[in-house]
Design a protein around this nucleic acid. Structure first.
Length: 429
RNA sequence: GCAGAGAUGGCGGAGUGGUCGAACGCGCACGACUCGAAAUCGUGUUACGUAGGAAUACGUACGGGGGUUCGAAUCCCUCUCUCUGCGCCA
């Protein structure tokens, strides 16, 4: 969500930004917003005047009543009543205009960063840096489910019986590896100075509609029956929700937090071979990082954050690359975003294991997250950023493929061994 | 889950239909006093929106939403949260 003042003063920049994102059908929204904004201010001015009258008349009535001038008071009452009818009219009209304005504003995308590559869709995303050498294996790498089964690490049949498609039982060393990765990632982020946080796994509808659009909500969120609660799709939801409507002292910034949570997603409309197994599921676990900072610091944090994920993966000896999100593939709230992709020796390509975004003040404006700028004395919106540290079920695919040995065992990199009871390998049963 | 009490500014805490954006105290800022400080005294000190170059003016907000009234922090309904007691439970 952009600042209305910004749209008013820079409509051409807003239009240009819409074109860069190949959303030309949204161009009329700019004029719509400008005219609704004008209407809104007119209504506010008339409303304010009328309300001022109402206050003045009410005071007069009070004075007259105290002086015992009942008849005169009744006359003013009638006057006030007529005025109030108009106030009510204006108020309902304002509410309509306000709603329409908010709706249109929500559809206008955030201004994207200058260095975002221009492109229509995900096919035009741009490879950034690569890390570690991505090589094919000297033997055929099976599908991750087959590796998991050969290690006795998964039971999908039972999961389908108990919960349906999109759930899993992880067992034995694989389950332990899953936890080891999360624990290692947690400690990794704590060592980077982040504060570890376990948030609520359910949030109220008020928070849900704050952190995502209605469409996203429909496609992702599970609702608890009979309660005003939803299962979170990512800990970002409860982590950002934590700051809704808050004004932080400048000294509290930056907030650098790393959170653990299970994530629940409906994943409506997800199909395809590569999404079989544990690539896309209804329930998974994730270590996340979020940062709330002053506007001038968000570019720097963005760079740091995606590089932390890269460092985490390379420390586990998994080749990764940065894939820079092009303008057309960037969600509307985002200023800049990139995916971290891990190498799949089986497919001979990289696949997404995490996503890092700088939302500048767009999310903060929507949620009312401010800080008091000590220099100007004014309350300003913070910048918010989020990034996946690691989501083990999906990262396990990369892990297994990259660390599979010719004899069918799976190598455990040094950094994880202390979380695996000292083991350096997971062997076939 | 049941019963009772409560939610007011950065904090504590008055206020139970009009003169309340809100007494009083603390904190904070500035000034006076002082060589300097403490103490003391004085002045100021919520946020958001609209108009304005600005000073400022007007409006809105006393947990959220709705209602009664010419007028609501105050009365009614509802939701959320907190405290106390009981019950239940890792």
């Amino acid at each position: 969500m952009l600042d209305i003042n910004f749209i008013r003063e820079n409509p051409d920049i807003v239009r240009e930004n819409i074109r860069k994102k190949f959303q030309d059908y949204k161009l009329p929204l700019v004029d719509e917003v400008l005219s609704l904004d004008k209407k809104r201010r007119e209504l506010q001015q008339e409303g304010d005047t009328r309300r001022a009258d109402r206050n003045r008349l009410a005071k007069q009535i009070g004075t007259l009543m105290r002086e015992g001038k009942k008849a005169e008071a009744e006359e003013v009452k009638a006057l006030s009543k007529a005025n109030n009818e108009r106030v009510t009219e204006i108020e309902s009209e304002s509410a309509e205009v306000e709603t329409a304005l908010k709706k249109a504003m929500a559809l206008i995308p955030n201004i994207i960063a200058d260095d975002v590559p221009i492109g229509k869709d995900d096919s035009e995303n741009v490879q950034g840096e690569t890390f570690l050498k991505a090589e094919p294996k000297p033997f055929e790498v099976p599908y991750h489910l087959d590796i998991l089964e050969s290690l006795n690490g998964i039971d999908l049949d039972s999961a389908r019986r108990t919960s349906g498609n999109g759930f899993y039982y992880l067992t034995g060393d694989i389950a332990r590896l899953h936890s080891a990765v999360l624990t290692y990632a947690r400690d990794f982020m704590i060592d980077k100075g982040f504060t570890y946080c376990i948030p609520p796994f359910m949030i109220r509808s008020e928070v849900v509609s704050g952190v995502m659009s209605f469409e996203e909500m429909e496609g992702m969120m599970y609702k608890i029956e009979g309660e005003d609660l939803y299962l979170i799709g990512t800990s970002e939801h409860s982590m950002i929700g934590r700051f809704m409507g808050q004004t932080l002292p400048e000294s509290a910034l930056p907030q650098t937090l790393t959170s653990y949570s299970p994530c629940f997603r409906k994943e409506k409309g997800a199909h395809g071979l590569e999404e079989r197994g544990i690539y896309r599921i209804h329930q998974f676990e994730k270590q996340e990082m979020i940062v709330l900072c002053k506007p001038e610091q968000s570019d720097e944090w963005y760079e740091k954050m995606w590089r932390y994920t890269v460092e985490l993966f390379t420390s586990m000896e998994i080749p990764v690359r940065q894939l820079i999100c092009c303008s057309g593939d960037l969600a509307d709230l985002k200023y800049k975003s990139c995916d971290i992709e891990a190498w799949s020796p089986r497919q001979g390509k990289y696949f997404e294991v995490g996503s890092c975004s700088n939302l500048t003040d767009a999310q903060a404006r929507r949620l009312g997250i401010r800080y008091k700028n000590e220099k100007t004395g004014r309350n300003e919106f913070v910048h918010t950023l989020n990034n996946t540290v690691v989501a083990p079920p999906r990262m396990l695919i990369a892990f297994l493929e990259n660390h599979l040995q010719a004899d069918g065992s799976v190598y455990i990199p040094e950094v994880l061994r202390k979380y695996m009871g000292g083991k350096d390998k997971i062997r076939i049963k």
